[in-house]
């Protein structure tokens, strides 16, 4: 277990909000009670969806070996490289800023800029665990529509960025 102080540091925003909620409950009982009911039902709903998502995420993280995939995404990898970059980004886990170190490794090992941009785009928007979660909370139609548009947009942006920005400016 974590030390108390560290725990407090991570959870203080949550705890203060909780305190505010209690305060509101004392001052305006109706709003406070409503807020409590909403939070509770949301919590129950989320907790019931979350376990399989995180199990899948853990499995992906362990079984998808990043180092071996990197070499399939170089300049001459063509459509296969594009697909791999897209899938690699989609299968990843973690926030977008966790993708930048991976992108740096890919660039250093000779992946094409276009493919790395596809990878970043996929990491940011079409992550598989997140898509499943999006479908459960926003509906399948919302998810699919956004997915189709995103795939087009990510490709266009990657293409335009590679063309528009001179090579020597790309890596600082």
């Amino acid at each position: 277990m974590m030390k108390g102080r560290e725990w407090l540091k991570r959870y203080w925003v949550f705890l203060s909000l909780l305190a505010i909620n209690v305060l509101i409950g004392i001052l305006w009982p109706q709003i406070g009670r409503q807020s409590w009911t909403l939070t509770k039902s949301n919590l129950v709903e989320m907790i019931s969806v979350i376990p399989p998502i995180f199990i899948l995420l853990g499995l992906l993280d362990i079984w998808v070996d990043r180092a071996t995939m990197v070499k399939y995404t170089g300049k001459d990898s063509g459509v296969k490289g594009m697909l791999i970059s897209f899938l690699l980004g989609s299968a990843a886990a973690g926030p977008l800023y966790a993708a930048f170190p991976v992108a740096a490794v890919m660039l250093g090992k000779g992946s094409s800029v276009f493919n790395v941009l596809l990878f970043i785009g996929a990491w940011s928007t079409t992550k598989i665990p997140l898509l499943t979660f999006e479908a459960t909370s926003m509906g399948i139609r919302f998810m699919i529509t956004r997915l189709v548009l995103s795939v087009i947009g990510i490709t266009v942006i990657a293409f335009a960025a590679e063309k528009a920005v001179p090579v020597e400016e790309k890596i600082s």
Partner: peptide, 24 residues
Amino acid sequence: ALKKAWKSFENILPQFLTVLVLIG
């Protein structure tokens, strides 16, 4: 993998709880 799953969940737990209360 299961340990990683738990760790990534525990990682977002503070923000997660915060936003749930915030939504309410």
